[in-house]
Design a protein around this nucleic acid. Structure first.
Length: 420
RNA sequence: GGAGGGGUGACCGAGUGGACGAUGGUGACGGUCUUGAAAACCGUUGUCUCCUCACGGGGACCGUGGGUUCGAAUCCCACCCCCUCCGCCA
């Protein structure tokens, strides 16, 4: 959520930012109108309230309660109720509109229309040459008996799969390797959060109200399944004032992620690239506003470190204004080359969200013991998404006979050096 | 799930209709005193929001949401959470 004061006082800044994103500017105009109406009503209600408070105080001092004053105040009370009902209605609409307006891109984000305008900022490693035709992971997985697509469908339907034997072990090894690396080498505190959360958590992270159609929801108990660990991690400090000298806070968390993928219907249905349930290791930072840009650089570096330790070639691309996620100020994606399915796989997306989520989730910090609370900045980045890294490993480390060499970094986590 | 108890400011803890944003204490900060420190004493110490260039002023907040009333931390209703006991369970 943007600061309503910013929208009010510098509407042009907001218009320009939304234009760069390709957003409909009418939303901003509506917000400004609703804000004006709301404050007008609030002012009326508060003036009446001040009068009532004053008179009530006077009445409390009087021996004989004056019936006419009380009657008058009863009317004032009714008017207050009426105006407030109206004000609440306007406030509700204002909130809904505000929650649906995306964040403003940072000044240095390249302006562009869509993914085609994203920029490669660097690349690492050389794609391995093959003396044979590398197979896609779904063929490798089935041949090796480590991915069972048919039974996944039997159990749960399309976009579900079963990992078995060394397939399952490879995933577990990767999870442990990533958690260990981030917690022991990069300074993150490991968190195990709930996978089902309350509605307000999704509002805090900005998945709701706008992206409800990508979420699983238990109507009976009103639990929402997390689409990423970013959701519970954002809310870990919801409605808190973080004490002085505490920031930055770094968290890392492995969770299952649940996504309906309504928007991507029919896309990427083959293999394990896009399922309704997948594992992810997520890094998350709460930082002081002045430091968030530098923290993003280091967040990307922490994600890259995993790629490098696994010996998997990748490139880093910066998203342009038109491709930026809803909450992000600036984002870098990491993509790995998959020689089997011959495409770049997005294994990580690292974003600085500025104070956008912090305002929604009401996460503040106190710079000094005497100072007023300020909103923190939040950052999130995959470190990394498991299925796609599995694809990259399988396809990059495959051999002519269909076996897969285990990357060196994972050998201590596996009971084998080769999957065959 | 059943029975009972309880949710008040950073913390402890008073407050059952009217000067209560909330007594008191602790902690923290500033000051007096002291060579220094402790003790003692004095003072300061919430969040949000609206109006104002500012000084300052208004409004809201005592788990959450409704209701009663001229007026609610205090009364009524619903819900949530915590504690104790019982039941059930990985």
């Amino acid at each position: 959520m943007l600061d309503i004061k910013l929208i009010r006082d510098n509407p042009d800044t907001v218009f320009k930012a939304m234009e760069k994103r390709g957003e409909d500017l009418d939303q901003v105009r509506e917000i400004i109108d609703l804000d004006n109406t709301y404050r007008q009503l609030l002012k009326e209600a508060e003036t009446l309230r001040a009068r009532r408070n004053d008179v009530s105080k006077q009445i409390s001092h009087m021996k004989d309660k004056p019936a006419d004053l009380i009657a008058e105040m009863r009317q004032v009370g009714d008017r207050i109720t009426g105006i407030e009902a109206e004000a609440n209605q306007v406030a509700g609409r204002l909130e809904d509109k505000s929650l649906r307006l995306p964040n403003m891109p940072a000044e240095d984000v390249p302006v562009g229309k869509d993914a085609a305008d994203n920029r490669e900022v660097r690349s690492w490693g050389k794609p391995k040459g093959f003396t044979f035709d590398p197979l896609p992971h779904w063929e490798l997985g089935e041949k090796l008996g480590i991915i069972d697509f048919q039974r996944g469908v039997k159990l749960s339907g399309t976009r579900f799969y079963v990992l078995s034997g060394l397939g399952s072990q490879l995933q577990r090894a990767l999870i442990n390797f990533m958690l260990d690396t981030h917690s022991k080498q990069h300074g993150y505190t490991e968190i195990y959060p709930p996978f089902m959360v309350k509605r307000e958590c999704l509002v805090g992270s900005s998945n709701l109200p706008k992206f409800a159609d990508n979420l699983y929801h238990d109507a009976e108990e009103d639990y929402w399944f997390i689409p990423t660990a970013e959701v519970p991690l954002t809310n870990l400090h919801r409605d808190e004032i973080i004490p002085p000298a505490t920031l930055p806070i770094y968290y890392v968390s492995h969770t299952s992620c649940f996504r309906r993928e309504k928007m991507a219907a029919g896309k990427d249905t083959r293999g394990i690239k896009r399922g309704h349930q997948f594992e992810k290791v997520e890094m998350y930072k709460f930082v002081e506003p002045e430091t968030s840009d530098g923290e993003l650089t280091r967040l990307v570096a922490d994600a890259e470190d995993i790629c490098q330790k696994l010996g998997l070639p990748y490139h880093v691309i910066q998203l342009c204004t038109g491709d930026l996620g809803f909450a992000a100020v600036k984002t870098f994606d990491i993509e790995m080359w998959a020689p089997g399915c011959k495409e770049w796989l997005e294994v990580s997306s690292c974003s600085n969200c500025g104070d956008f989520q912090a305002r929604r989730a009401n996460v503040r910090y106190r710079p000094d013991p005497e100072a007023k609370p300020r909103l923190v900045h939040t950052l999130n980045g995959s470190g990394l998404a498991l299925p796609r890294v599995m694809i990259a490993i399988m396809e990059n480390y495959q051999q002519a006979d269909g076996s897969i060499v285990v990357p060196e970094a994972l050998i201590p986590y596996m009971n084998t050096t080769i999957i065959r």
